[in-house]
């Protein structure tokens, strides 16, 4: 598969974070750059710019970091930005890799990520609720990372598990989903070059409320597939249980590919509101990535396997 290398990539395609913050903020940022105290947990990253770009204008960092669905930190979209920073302890962090692979083990976050080049990828993010954003992620291709653990021929699926720590996550006291949050991909979806593990966004480390220190990003699927704060990766032969599918199988399928033709039973998926825009816009099949990923689902009835 080819990620089109954006032949006409200009510097302005990947807008620098500071440019779309308002001026006062820009000045504050400039001051912070001169006197590097830094915002808590917002370490800048070293990464390859513009590996995947978009013509769509990125959502403001402000919006992307204050409008979050992260139920472990509360069900209101403003909750995670209030409760996660300072509570979620992202270092030290380690990930357990297990299941159908030759090299299972527990690996420190740094060792997991360090062998890879960090890449900036500007992706659309479409929430199942009918809103969307455009986010410049910084991360590593999941497939390359998974290969290091040498999955066996029995590995047909990959399961991901989020942190579930009552001391850090006040939302866990409410038994809404079956904690810990789990997600899963078919092996070919996981190995697809568009699928990444993100460690940052907007050029800096992920804010806690966006799933620090490590989250999945699968841009052609509804946002809830992109599981946050991953502590466990398991290769399996059978399809893993996933949190929202468990909660309401009729409403949230295992695949959950963005599809304007298949409505959520309770609301339409034909259109979306791009955060920052007033009018709704049409939702694109596979969130605009059909050319790259539709082949993964050839021969499947997407109305049944939603």
């Amino acid at each position: 598969m080819l990620i089109r290398p954006a032949p006409d990539l200009r510097e302005c395609d990947v807008t620098d974070r500071a440019l779309y913050l308002d001026r006062r903020r820009f000045l504050a940022l400039a001051a912070a750059a001169l006197f590097p105290v830094g915002r808590a947990g917002a370490a800048p990253l070293d990464y390859a710019r513009g590996v995947v770009t978009l013509d769509d204008k990125p959502t403001s960092f402000e919006a992307a970091s204050t409008y979050n669905n992260y139920y472990e930190f509360g069900t209101d979209k403003a909750d995670p930005a209030r409760t996660a920073p300072g509570r979620l302890k992202t270092r030290p962090w380690s990930v357990v890799v297990e299941g159908e692979c030759a090299r299972p083990g527990t690996i420190a976050f740094e060792d997991l990520v360090k062998p890879h080049r960090l890449e900036e990828r500007v992706y659309r993010m479409r929430c199942v609720e009918g809103w969307s954003m455009v986010i410049p992620w910084v991360g590593v291709p999941l497939g390359e990372l998974l290969k290091r653990f040498e999955p066996t021929s029995k590995a047909k699926f990959v399961e991901f598990v989020s942190l579930a720590d009552r001391d850090q996550m006040p939302g866990l006291r409410v038994p809404i989903l079956n904690w810990p949050y789990t997600e899963g991909l078919r092996m070919d979806e996981a190995m697809h070059p568009l699928t990444i593990l993100a460690v940052g966004m907007y050029g800096q480390e992920l804010p806690a409320q966006n799933g620090a220190p490590l989250r999945l990003v699968v841009p052609w699927k509804y946002g809830f597939k992109s599981i946050k704060s991953i502590v466990r990766i398991r290769f399996s032969e059978t399809r893993p249980a996933t949190a929202w599918n468990d909660y309401a199988p009729r409403e949230y399928g295992f695949y959950s590919n963005v599809n304007p033709e298949v409505d959520h039973p309770r609301w339409s998926q034909a259109t979306e509101r791009r955060i920052g825009e007033f009018r709704r816009r049409p939702t694109l099949p596979f969130n605009g990535y059909a050319e790259q990923v539709a082949g993964l689902y050839a021969g499947m009835d997407l109305r049944v396997e939603y």
Binding site: E62, A63, T66, Y67, K77, A78, W131, R273, I275, F278
Partner: peptide, 11 residues
Amino acid sequence: FSDDLGVNPVE
């Protein structure tokens, strides 16, 4: 009026 309707004002 004071631009304080949050990230998704319509919602």
